[in-house]
Amino acid sequence: SFLGSTERYDAAVLDLGLPELDGISVLKQWREQGCNFPVLILTGRGRWSDELAGFGAGADDSLTKPFMHDEVVVRLRALVRRAYGHADPVLQVGPLAYDTLQGRFSMEGRRLAFTAQEERILAYLMHQPGVVLSRSDIVEHVYARDSDPDSNALDVLIGRIRRKLGVSMIRTVRGRGFVLAAPEGDEA
C-alpha cells in the first residue's frame, strides 16, 4: 500500500488530480499509520474543495497547477527544515552555514562547492547537528532507491566533505555512524 507506509521520507509530493489515484485516501492512510513526514499536495486551478480536503486529511502545504519547478523545490526545503524544528531558512553549525532556500553552503561567509551527493549528505547532517546518524540512514538519503553503493563510497564522500570544510566538524562515532558538530571550542 504505497511507499509512504513502508519507507521513511523527509517529505512527499502528492498530486490530488491523478485519475487512477485517490490522493486524499492515500494521505489519510499515511496519517492513520503514523507517517508524520510533511506532505505537499498539488491541486488543479479552482479546486479549492480538494485543497480543503487535503488539509483536513493532514497536508502541510499545497500548490495549484500550473506551477514552477523551483517553487516546488523551495517549498519542500522549507517543509523539511520545519519538520526538523528549524524556523530560520539559514541553518548554522559553528562557522558553517546552509541556506536552505538557495541550497548553498558557506564557511564564515565563504561559499563552498560540493557535488550533488556531498550536498545531500551535508544537508542531512546540518538538519540534525549533534545527532549520530547511522551509515544506513545517510545512504538512504543520498542514493537513489534502487542503487546499491559499495561499502566505502560513503567514507570517500565524507572524506571529501571534511577536506572541503577544512575544519574538524564531522566526527566518526565508531560502530554507530557520523555526527556533525561545531569545532571544539566553538560555541555557535
Rank of each mutant, 00 (worst) to 15 (best):
N152G: 08
R171L: 13
Y143H: 11
R171C: 05
A153R: 06
C35L: 06
T6D: 13
V13R: 01
P19Q: 15
G54P: 07
A144N: 08
D61V: 02
A153E: 07
S62E: 02
A181S: 13
G46E: 09
W48G: 10
I41T: 13
F37I: 06
P183M: 12
S136T: 11
M126Q: 09
W30V: 02
V93E: 03
R111S: 12
D148S: 07
H86Y: 02
T172P: 05
P89F: 08
H141N: 12
L91A: 04
Y124C: 02
L16P: 00
T43E: 04
L154E: 03
Q92E: 10
R8N: 14
A182E: 03
L122W: 00
T64D: 04
L21F: 05
D61Q: 10
L101C: 05
A87Y: 07
M126E: 11
R171K: 11
R77K: 08
I121H: 00
R162K: 15
L3E: 14
S106N: 14
Q128K: 14
L157V: 02
G44T: 08
P129M: 10
G46A: 09
Q29W: 07
D150L: 06
I24P: 01
A97Y: 07
G103L: 08
G46S: 06
D186T: 07
A113G: 09
Y124M: 04
V131E: 05
H127M: 13
R8V: 13
A188G: 13
H86R: 10
P129R: 07
R75E: 01
I138H: 00
L165P: 00
E184R: 13
G109S: 12
F114G: 04
G44A: 15
I24E: 08
G56E: 15
L180R: 01
D60P: 04
R120G: 11
G177S: 08
A78I: 02
V173I: 12
R160Q: 14
V142T: 13
Q29I: 09
L112Y: 03
L96V: 12
R163L: 10
V80C: 04
R81Y: 03
G159Y: 11
D88Q: 12
L52G: 06
D15Q: 00
V167I: 13
V80H: 05
T100F: 02
L3D: 14
A11K: 05
G185E: 11
A181C: 12
S62M: 06
Q29T: 15
R8P: 01
G103T: 08
K28I: 04
L40S: 04
A116N: 05
G46V: 04
S136I: 05
I138N: 00
A57I: 11
Q128H: 12
M107K: 14
L157C: 00
R110M: 07
R82I: 04
S62P: 13
G109L: 11
Q29N: 13
T115E: 10
L21I: 13
T43L: 03
R174M: 06
Q92D: 05
R31T: 06
S1C: 11
V179T: 09
L63F: 07
G103R: 08
E184A: 13
V73Y: 03
I41A: 06
T6I: 14
A53L: 14
Q29S: 14
D88L: 05
L112T: 05
Y98D: 00
K28R: 15
G4V: 01
L42G: 00
R82Y: 01
A181F: 03
V80Y: 06
G103H: 07
A181L: 14
L18W: 09
Y84V: 01
G185D: 13
